[in-house]
């Protein structure tokens, strides 16, 4: 079976269109980021409380609790501005998501306070065995540290990649690859901002995974370009690179497809905990594949064309 025979799609010729599309999407993300004053960070980075509680009625005649009732109870106990959200669980379970800044120092243990209030006010809906599904409280200090660590991690990953590609190819390949990675990360973060999704610790992990995946994809194309540039010395850079993209197209699509399918499974069946993580990967697989073809490789064409202008045509030089 074969999806593609020999293709001769002119990717390089259409690179300006691709650049425009990328710019528009990135710009939309940046505008959203500016309006929202940066990404929406989760409590991993800001510090605070996040919990998922099960409040399915247990006592006879118990009612489903309204969000407003919970809000009132918490406000009375001095926990104001809590973000409360109802989610439908499996088998009619009533689940509630509560997020709030930590009140005072962690010594006061806001999360424990929330639990106490809920137990006190809604005893008919509390089964102590299953009440707490998720309870997270992060001190502001830890949040700041994690933010610093996340930025450092991305920095080291990118540096490591540039150095490796520099060693295996040449510096420009490394820079083009990293430019494509920036493209992928910017688009993913932008989409998260547009959809109002939070950037948590696991989303940073997803971003780094996207970096790894997109790079994997880019390297396979670059590897072909490196090979073909030696093979077809008389062709122009643009047409050799275009040829390389076409040659690897079938592999690019198949690998993206299998990866996309498994990540889709993770997104659909993987459960609430992993949902946003899987979503980031879904975006990443699509954007990462796109960027290897439409960003990284065309950037190399741009680079070679500039070099050619400076040093004279490669086809002439080789004669």
């Amino acid at each position: 079976m074969k999806f593609f025979g020999k293709t001769k799609i002119d990717f390089i010729g259409k690179r300006r269109i691709a650049f425009a599309i990328s710019s528009v999407i990135i710009l939309a993300g940046i505008v959203s980021l500016v309006i929202n004053q940066g990404p929406k960070y989760s409590i991993d980075f800001t510090g605070g409380v996040s919990m998922e509680l099960e409040l399915t009625p247990v006592a006879e005649g118990a009612q489903i609790i309204k969000v407003q009732e919970i809000r009132d109870a918490l406000t009375n106990a001095g926990i104001e501005d809590a973000e409360i959200q109802e989610i439908k669980g499996k088998e009619g379970k009533q689940l509630v998501l509560i997020k709030t800044q930590a009140v005072g120092e962690m010594k006061d243990k806001t999360s424990t306070k929330v639990i106490d209030v809920i137990k006190q006010q809604f005893p008919d809906n509390v089964d102590p065995e299953t009440l707490i599904r998720l309870q997270e409280e992060v001190g502001p200090k830890i949040g700041e540290e994690l933010k610093g660590k996340a930025i450092l991690a991305i920095f080291w990953a990118l540096l490591g990649i540039i150095l490796y590609i520099w060693w295996r190819f040449e510096l420009t390949f490394g820079l083009a690859a990293v430019a494509a990675l920036f493209h992928d990360v910017l688009i993913t973060v932008g989409i998260f901002s547009l959809l109002g999704k939070e950037i948590s610790l696991s989303i940073v992990a997803a971003l780094l995974t996207i970096v790894g995946y997109s790079l994997n994809d880019t390297i396979v194309v670059f590897d072909r370009i490196r090979e073909d540039l030696k093979l077809y010395r008389k062709e122009s850079y643009g047409s050799v690179i275009n040829y390389s993209i076409n040659e690897t197209l079938s592999r690019t699509i198949i690998t993206s497809l299998t990866t996309f399918v498994v990540v889709l499974c993770l997104y659909i069946f993987g459960g609430s905990v992993i949902h946003d993580f899987a979503f980031a990967l879904l975006v990443g697989v699509v954007v990462g594949t796109y960027s290897s073809i439409f960003v990284a490789s065309p950037l190399m064409v741009e680079h070679f064309n500039k070099k050619e202008k400076k040093l004279g045509s490669r086809t002439k030089k080789k004669k």
């Binding site: 010594k107 999360s111 299953t130 599904r133 001190g139 200090k141 830890i142």
Partner: peptide
């Protein structure tokens, strides 16, 4: 001081 805590219930 407790600076971080994460609890996952058995159901989740």
């Amino acid at each position: 001081n407790i600076i971080e805590e994460r609890t996952v219930g058995p159901t989740l």
